[in-house]
Amino acid sequence: STRDVLLACPMNMNPHAGSGRTAQEIWEDFSLSFTPAVREVVEFAKHIPGFRDLCQHDQVTLLKAGTFEVLMVRFASLFNVKEQTVKFISGTKYSLEELRQMGMGDLLNSMFDFSEKLNNLSLTEEELALFTAVVLVSADRSSIKNVDSVEQLQETLIRALRALIMKNHPNETSRFTKLLLKLPDLRTLNNLHSEKLLSFRID
């Protein structure tokens, strides 16, 4: 059902809330769960050197387009491939089968695939933070006004990420490439997620 599509999000603190609520009430309840996470993404962005120097329109555009991807990176550790479970931020674990019944299909499989690949890289906190900054500062998001400024910041962040990865893993030359290849995977997940959201609202 459309209700289950919404409630199956790992950020939903209350996925099995009582029925009989209006769509508006469901959205408002869910917003209480994801709003703090979105605020944390914004706080993270504010601490990226150079982010606050971008025009406000571009800051908002990057955050609107990239928040899902940042959260996906951040919550990849909630996806346990071995156990085939997802731990919601409420602490409750759901099996793959339960989540499928809640309306998560292709998106769920893709999230598991991504999480497995990212978790296998065993990034340090510093590497993960810098990678997350690279995910967020992408000059090819639509509606960016000052592409040159965003591109410049993006290049600086990519160079810093490359230097950090090379310093931490000097004998693994393909590691940086593997990490950058996660960017198109995140775009695909973002698109699948957007389709899910749209289908809910249309229904």
Binding site: W27, E28, S31, F34, T35, V38, R39, V42, E43, K46, Q56, Q59, V60, L63, K64, A65, T67, H193, S194, L197, L198, R201
Partner: peptide
């Protein structure tokens, strides 16, 4: 609306968080 971010009220949350406004409300 064709913008999923707007559907979630995401822009509103982002703008207020960027401006340091603690109180946010999703439409």
């Amino acid at each position: 609306c064709a913008d999923p971010a707007s559907n979630l009220g995401l822009e509103d949350i982002i703008r207020k968080a960027l401006m340091g406004n603690i109180e946010t409300k999703v439409e």
